[in-house]
């Protein structure tokens, strides 16, 4: 018998706590596969955020820190500076990274911290029950924008890649999506690239996953994917923003 698919070594055998149809499981797996494939499991450390993926520290099978809300890039900075021979990533949602943690992410990127940041954008706060996120789309109804996000009152969605791309230090910035099998294969390549650069201590690497939240969007997983393609792509286009590892990539 030949094993053609199995749990990556970089994931523990705990069951995920995510809702059916949630894309967190996919992004966890992509990161774990990349760590395995690059042979980094023994030199890897990660930081979990506050939000739906708050238990990520239990799921990744190497040393993990659980950070205060939004502070993962600061915690990762302390870890990388303390153990420069190790490699560090953060895993953050949209509330964590683009609302309460905007200061930490901008400054970690601006310092060119030699860490990877994986940013899960599903335009809503999942863990607390579907409240408005900094990336919630105009007109989108959430439990704290019951009449739809009014951009004249609360502004437009924050676009993290575009924001970070104004800084000089970051080494690699790409937005991918998890909305179809083809998208997931492309996302895997981006994760591998970020982790390869991380392994080589090249600089700050950032991958955003355009994701879904079927539960709090009130949709089936398939409808959520369709809705995301139609509504999220105009605000969050899938795009390579910067890759200093290739010629002309800056």
């Amino acid at each position: 018998m030949q094993v053609i698919a199995q749990r990556p070594k970089s994931l523990t055998d705990l069951n995920f706590t995510y809702c059916p149809g949630c894309t967190h499981g996919i992004s966890h797996r992509l990161i774990a596969e990349a760590v395995d494939e690059l042979g980094m499991r023994n030199i890897m450390m990660g930081v979990a955020p506050v939000g739906c993926s708050v238990f990520a520290y239990k799921f990744f099978n190497f040393d993990m820190a659980e950070a205060a809300h939004g502070r993962a890039p600061a915690v990762a900075t302390g870890m990388k500076r303390a153990r420069p021979n190790m490699h560090v990533f953060t895993y953050q949602g949209d509330g964590d990274l683009a609302a309460i943690g905007t200061s930490e992410i901008i400054h970690a990127a601006n310092r060119g911290e030699k860490i990877s940041v994986f940013f899960v954008n599903n335009a809503i706060y999942g863990m607390t029950g579907g409240q408005m996120a900094p990336t919630t789309l105009p007109g989108m109804k959430t439990s704290t924008s019951p009449y739809g996000r009014d951009e004249k009152d609360i502004g437009y969605p924050i676009t993290a890649c575009e924001l970070l791309n104004t800084l000089r230090a970051p080494y690699y910035i790409e937005r991918v999506s998890l909305l179809s099998p083809q998208d997931i294969l492309k996302a895997k390549k981006a994760v591998l690239k970020a982790m390869t650069y991380n392994k080589e201590n090249r600089g700050f690497t950032f991958v955003e996953f355009v994701s879904t939240c079927p539960t709090n969007w009130g949709m089936t997983p398939l409808d959520a994917q369709k809705w995301a393609k139609e509504n999220m792509y105009p605000f969050f286009p899938v795009k390579l923003f910067r890759d200093k590892g290739v010629e002309g990539g800056e």
């Binding site: 820190a65 600061a74 302390g78 870890m79 500076r81 303390a82 200061s103 930490e104």
Partner: peptide, 26 residues
């Protein structure tokens, strides 16, 4: 050693959290 002027007190203390979590005197 590492000297880092953080962007805020919040960031600074959380950097300490990370370094202390790695077992270093921070």
């Amino acid at each position: 050693g590492t000297f880092l002027q953080a962007e805020s007190e919040l960031a600074a203390v959380n950097m300490v959290y990370g370094a202390a979590g790695c077992g270093k005197r921070a």
